[in-house]
Design a protein around this nucleic acid. Structure first.
Length: 293
DNA sequence: GGCCAGGTGTGTT
DNA sequence: AACACACATGGC
């Protein structure tokens, strides 16, 4: 039994923390000098890339660090997943450009709500909306002395109670009624997010897309980023661009056809391949890692 | 100032 | 099944 502590080090190789936390999966990580701060569940966390892997410190002492190991997926076998990718030039290039990029394992409600808010929004704006939502409706969490206040992501029950006009004040525009109704149904147990990990991908998609504001893309984000469905393959404008340029440079391919191509081409860890394509494309377009933003 | 953003809902062919 | 359009808001 480990002693309670506010510090822990995870031994892990081939893990690029910056790429992972800044690759459009999660929206609450802030970069500072040499470290990243954020909220995971009800805990404030600072993460730093170290010699042996990843160093973490928290706002309150922790005895069992499995929640963070799980979130960061430090035990995932990255090499095996990379080896499962199709052996073609586009994937070789994407892997070479994104060494150590990982998929996180996020809370399903936070992930669902975040991606309902993501449609036709830039990542910087998604981050702003979510930040405001957490400040207004999230529970305060313990932070180290001298740190700014931190807030958990608001529960579904909490957001279900917020009037639509107030949600619109957080600048989410037409997404406000979608978020509110999705929150109500999740809080009422009409959709059970925890069950989505244990049913087939198609059944899970059908369940999620019953919710307003949730189509194929948002559903696959939730299934990939928080339910561990390894072949979920969200196709957004960036992935569409990547697939178009890298696999079909000569002819235009429609979105539904592109989804069908993706469903057969990328193998048992297609979702991971998707994240490499997404990050590769955004990086080469110069939208990632630029100071100032 | 126009184009675009980790899309979805609704209505038409 | 495949398209067209509206939908808020803000970065560039």
């Amino acid at each position: 039994m480990a002693a309670r502590s506010t510090r822990h080090e995870f031994a892990v190789r081939n893990y690029d923390l910056a790429a992972t936390l800044d690759s459009g999966q999660a929206f609450r990580w802030e970069a500072r000098a040499g470290e990243w701060t954020g909220i995971v569940g009800r805990r404030w966390v600072a993460l730093r890339q170290s010699e042996a892997g990843i160093e973490a410190r928290t706002g309150e002492a922790v005895a069992d660090w499995r929640w963070l190991a799980d979130y960061l997926q430090v035990e995932a076998d990255l090499a095996a997943m990379l080896a499962s990718f199709p052996d073609d030039e586009p994937m070789r290039a994407a892997v070479a450009a994104c060494r150590g990029l990982r998929l996180l394992r996020q809370d399903p409600w936070e992930c669902l709500a975040s991606f309902i808010l993501s449609s036709t929004k830039q990542i910087v704006q998604i981050r702003q909306i979510i930040g405001e939502l957490c400040r207004r409706y999230g529970a305060a969490v313990a932070v180290p002395a001298g740190e700014a206040a931190g807030f958990a992501f608001p529960t579904a029950a909490a957001l279900a109670r917020v009037p639509e006009a107030e949600l619109r004040d957080c600048r989410m525009g037409f997404r406000a009624p979608y978020l509110r109704e999705a929150a109500r149904r999740v809080a009422a147990g009409e959709v059970k997010l925890d069950a989505l990990s244990w049913i087939t991908l198609d059944a899970a998609r059908a369940e999620l897309t019953r919710l307003p504001g949730v189509g194929p893309k948002v559903a696959d984000c939730v299934l990939l980023f928080s339910c561990g469905q390894p072949t979920a393959f969200p196709v957004d404008v960036w992935v569409m661009k990547a697939l178009q340029q890298l696999y079909f440079p000569r002819r235009r391919v429609t979105l539904p056809r592109m989804r069908r191509f993706a469903a057969t081409h990328f193998g048992p860890h297609a979702g991971y391949a998707q994240q490499y394509l997404f990050h590769y494309m955004r990086k080469s377009a110069g939208r990632v890692g630029k100071a100032g933003a």
